[in-house]
Simulated assay, not measured.
Amino acid sequence: MKGVLLVNLGSPESPTAKDVKPYLDEFLMDKYVIDVPFLLRAFLVRGLILRKRPEKSAAAYAKVWWDEGSPLVVLSKRMFEKVKPLANVPMALSMRYGNPNIYSGLKELADKGVTEVLLFPLYPHHAMSSTVTVLEKAEEVRKEHFPNMKFSSIPAFYNKPDYIKNLSDSIQKHLKDYDYDHLLFSYHGLPERHIRKTDVTKSHCKIDGSCCNTPSPAHEFCYRHQCYETTKLVVKALGIPEGKYSQTFQSRLAGDKWLEPYTDVEVNKMPEKGIKNLAVVTPAFVADCLETLEEIAMEANHQFKEHGGENFLAIPCLNDDEEWCKTVGNWINDWAEKK
C-alpha cells in the first residue's frame, strides 16, 4: 500500500529557553545545517552558540507564538487536515526537528499497512539544509525501524505551474488593495559553500551574474538558481514591470559568506531610493514561521519605517490556502496512480 509523509522544518515545544535549547541543539548539530566536522560543530554549537542563543531565540518565538502553539506546526497541521480528504492514500505529518518527528510519522503509516512512502518535504527549493536532511533522516529511520519500506520523493517544485499559479494568485490577492512601490522576494539565505557543494557538475556554480541563467544539470539541485526562477515566473505571471521588484536572501549567520544581497541591508536602503510602500513575499516557506512572522513582518517592518518607509506589507505564505491544498492533493494522487 502507498502512503505519503509530509515533512516541514519543526519548532520548539514552547517559547522558553528550556525547550528552545534542545530544539536548537538538534537543528544546529545537523551536519547538513552546519556542515563542518563533528568535533568542530559540537564546539561551535554546544560550546558557544547554545550558551546564549536559546534565551534570544525564545524571546523571538514568544513574539509570534499562538495560543494553539507554534505557528509553523499549527499551520502545517491545518494544511495537512485540508489535504488529507483530497488524497487517495494514507497520509502522515512530521517535522524534521522536534515533534511530531519522522519516526512517529512513518510508524503511523506503517500501522496502516503502508509499505511504499512518498516523502514530501514542504520546501519548494532544493537545499542541503532542507530537502537533503529530510530525505537522509527518513532513510536513517527506515533502515533502523522499517527496513521493508520503500521510499520515493517529490522533486523541488519551485517552477511547477500549479505552484507558481497558487503563489501568484496569493500575492495578487494580498496586493489588490495595497498601492505598493516595490515587491521584494525574500528567500531564506544559505552559505555560498552549500551552493557549491550541491553542484553536481563540480564546476558550474560560480555564484556570479551569469551561472544561474546559463543552462546546466546543476540547476536541478541549485537553491540559488531555483529561487531566481521562482521570482522570474511569478513576475511574469503577475506582469510586474522591471524595477518594481527585487530579490534578496534573509536569515544569515555571522562568519561565512552567505548568498547576497541581504534582505535587511536592502530593506534599510529602500526609503532613500523613494520606496515608501513596500510589500514583501517569502516564497522559500510554504507556512509562516519565525523567519516570516518575526524577522520580516516585525523586524524588517520596523527597520523599514525607522529608515523613512511609510507602509509595509508582509504577504502571508500559502499556509492552508484552499487552492494550494488542492494542488498538493493532486500531486499526491498523480504519484499514487502511477504503477
Score class of each variant (00 low, 15 high):
residue 330 N to L: 12
residue 279 A to W: 00
residue 45 V to R: 00
residue 193 R to T: 13
residue 70 S to C: 08
residue 100 P to E: 04
residue 84 K to Q: 15
residue 291 E to H: 05
residue 77 K to R: 12
residue 40 L to C: 11
residue 54 P to N: 08
residue 106 L to T: 00
residue 127 A to G: 07
residue 48 L to Y: 05
residue 241 P to G: 12
residue 273 K to V: 02
residue 11 S to D: 09
residue 54 P to K: 04
residue 260 E to A: 15
residue 261 P to R: 06
residue 150 K to Y: 05
residue 77 K to Y: 08
residue 74 V to H: 03
residue 18 K to W: 03
residue 195 I to F: 08
residue 103 Y to N: 05
residue 97 Y to P: 06
residue 185 F to E: 08
residue 263 T to F: 03
residue 183 L to Q: 06
residue 59 A to D: 08
residue 82 K to Q: 10
residue 325 C to Q: 04
residue 328 V to D: 08
residue 232 K to G: 14
residue 251 S to V: 03
residue 191 P to D: 12
residue 40 L to Q: 10
residue 3 G to V: 00
residue 163 Y to W: 09
residue 3 G to Y: 00
residue 334 D to H: 14
residue 148 N to S: 14
residue 156 A to K: 01
residue 278 L to H: 03
residue 270 M to A: 08
residue 260 E to P: 07
residue 122 L to H: 01
residue 43 F to E: 04
residue 152 S to C: 12
residue 224 R to Q: 11
residue 320 D to T: 02
residue 145 H to Q: 05
residue 71 P to R: 02
residue 15 P to W: 00
residue 313 L to G: 11
residue 269 K to I: 02
residue 118 L to V: 06
residue 300 A to Q: 12
residue 34 I to R: 04
residue 159 N to A: 13
residue 114 V to W: 00
residue 170 S to N: 12
residue 72 L to Y: 02
residue 285 F to N: 07
residue 69 G to H: 06
residue 337 E to M: 13
residue 335 W to F: 14
residue 190 L to V: 07
residue 22 P to M: 08
residue 71 P to I: 00
residue 301 N to V: 03
residue 112 K to R: 11
residue 190 L to G: 07
residue 108 E to Y: 01
residue 151 F to S: 05
residue 188 H to L: 10
residue 332 I to A: 15
residue 188 H to R: 05
residue 165 K to G: 10
residue 165 K to H: 10
residue 230 T to V: 13
residue 89 V to P: 06
residue 101 N to C: 07
residue 238 L to P: 14
residue 37 P to H: 05
residue 124 P to V: 04
residue 63 K to A: 11
residue 203 S to A: 14
residue 59 A to R: 06
residue 228 Y to H: 14
residue 275 I to D: 03
residue 196 R to C: 15
residue 182 H to M: 14
residue 243 G to I: 03
residue 250 Q to E: 09
residue 165 K to N: 13
residue 161 P to H: 02
residue 20 V to L: 08
residue 244 K to P: 09
residue 315 I to P: 01
residue 5 L to H: 01
residue 105 G to F: 00
residue 259 L to N: 05
residue 328 V to N: 10
residue 307 H to S: 15
residue 159 N to R: 14
residue 176 K to W: 11
residue 324 W to Q: 10
residue 153 S to L: 08
residue 240 I to T: 09
residue 136 E to A: 14
residue 331 W to P: 11
residue 12 P to H: 03
residue 329 G to P: 06
residue 164 I to V: 12
residue 258 W to N: 11
residue 162 D to M: 10
residue 91 M to S: 08
residue 187 Y to D: 09
residue 99 N to W: 05
residue 278 L to T: 01
